[in-house]
């Protein structure tokens, strides 16, 4: 299997890297978010000819990240998901559901610690 690397970048470089990826003929595969203690890691994954390119940014809860939906139109599904599940604001999404993409019992469930009654 192919080895994988994740390149750390800054929030300011997100749009520029997306433009570069588009110019190189990559397709957007995935934007994923992970909560590590108090910070959030967001990974942008692009692919060309079955090879993955990953860029990682690290943000805090109140930070705002730019949308890449101007470059990759389809990225709105990922960006709305990150907003709804993590509560991170994404600026300038082309189709902004404003928090109604996922209707969850708890707001931004992945940004909080949840205990449910009756847990074993």
């Amino acid at each position: 299997m192919e080895p994988q690397t994740i390149v750390p970048i800054t929030v300011g470089e997100v749009v520029q890297k997306a433009e570069q990826a588009k110019k190189d003929g990559c397709r957007l595969v995935l934007i994923s978010c992970t909560k590590i203690d108090e910070t959030f890691e967001i990974i942008y994954t692009y692919e060309k000819d079955l090879k993955l390119t990953n860029y990682r940014i690290t943000v805090k809860q109140d930070d705002e990240i730019p949308s890449i939906s101007g470059i990759y139109w389809g990225s709105f599904v990922y960006e709305n998901e990150i907003h709804d599940l993590y509560g991170i604001h994404v600026k300038g999404i082309n189709i902004d559901f404003k928090g109604t993409f996922y209707k969850t019992a708890i707001k931004h469930p992945f940004s909080v610690t949840i205990t449910k009654e009756g847990d074993a």
Partner: peptide
Amino acid sequence: EHPKRHAKGGAE
């Protein structure tokens, strides 16, 4: 009857 849930921290 919804089970009570408690959420700590995070965004409002």
